[in-house]
Amino acid sequence: MQHANLMVYLLEGIIVFFILYKIFSARAGRRLFIRRIPGLTAIDEAVGRATEMGRPMMFSPGLGGITVVTLQALSILGHIISIAARYRARIIVPTSDPMLYTIAEETVRDAYESQGIGEIFNRDDIRFVSSDQFAYASGVVGILNREKVAGAFYFGDFFAESLILAENGQQVGAIQVAGTPQVMQIPFFIAACDYTIIGDEYYAASAYLSREPTLLGSLVGQDYSKAVILFLIIIGIVSASFLAVSTAPFLETIMLRFTGAFSG
């Protein structure tokens, strides 16, 4: 599908409505509940441990360029840096995209300055490593081993290098927390990391860490939208099942209209 059709107008309209409605109602002061996500709670633990051990931490934003996924990773990075800055802990951020490198540097500097300790910001801790997948992996593995990091965070787009990074982090004894929307990489992170953020928890992370009303509202709006999608899936399943066993023309027409509406 290159352009939206009627069903996309409707579905996107409903999703956008829920998200914006919940954002503005949260901003107006409505209290919203968010369940505990163990992987995100572990971030505090990792920062505390690194501080006690006097060793640095590492945050990898993955191989994505400037995309929604990476911007979310940077948002999480900002929160982690804020926690680390309280303990004056050091975080190394290796990046794979020069454009991302400049934004990451700005994010980290802002997070330190917001805690009033801008002077401990070290520019060399934010590094451009390489745009090449395995050169980047090799660079990050080098950092993990040389710096003996105590905590490693992987948030962003990861591909075949995910296991190389996570296994090396495991070997140096770092507490590792990972989150990626790349579904194929999640099993590798689950196998090699201490905590893994799965699926849409990735987009819930900044809301969970900051408890900002805007982000919490957006998260609740997303849940409402998922309920709508779930409802549509159920209708889709019923439609497809009816079509497979029934030849009633009127039923067939209604069901095909419904299933066809999403097809292009």
């Binding site: 996107e12 999703i15 956008v16 998200i19 914006l20 954002i23 929604v68 996924v69 911007l71 979310q72 940077l74 948002s75 900002g78 934004i103 700005e106 994010t107 802002d110 997070a111 917001s114 929307p181 579904v183 999640i186 799965i198 699926g199 849409d200 990735y202 987009y203 819930a204 900044s206 900051s210 900002e212 805007t214 982000l215 957006s218 998260l219 709006g221 997303q222 939208s225 998922k226 999608i229």
Partner: peptide, 30 residues
């Protein structure tokens, strides 16, 4: 998972587009 990720991505994009996102690039005067 893809459904959840898709909706999450859409919400994030919407917040960025409408400057509702709280991040160093929008949150404060740079």
């Amino acid at each position: 998972m893809m459904f959840g990720i898709g909706v999450g991505g859409l919400a994030m994009a919407l917040r960025l587009w409408l400057s509702l996102e709280r991040g160093s690039f929008f949150d404060k005067q740079l």
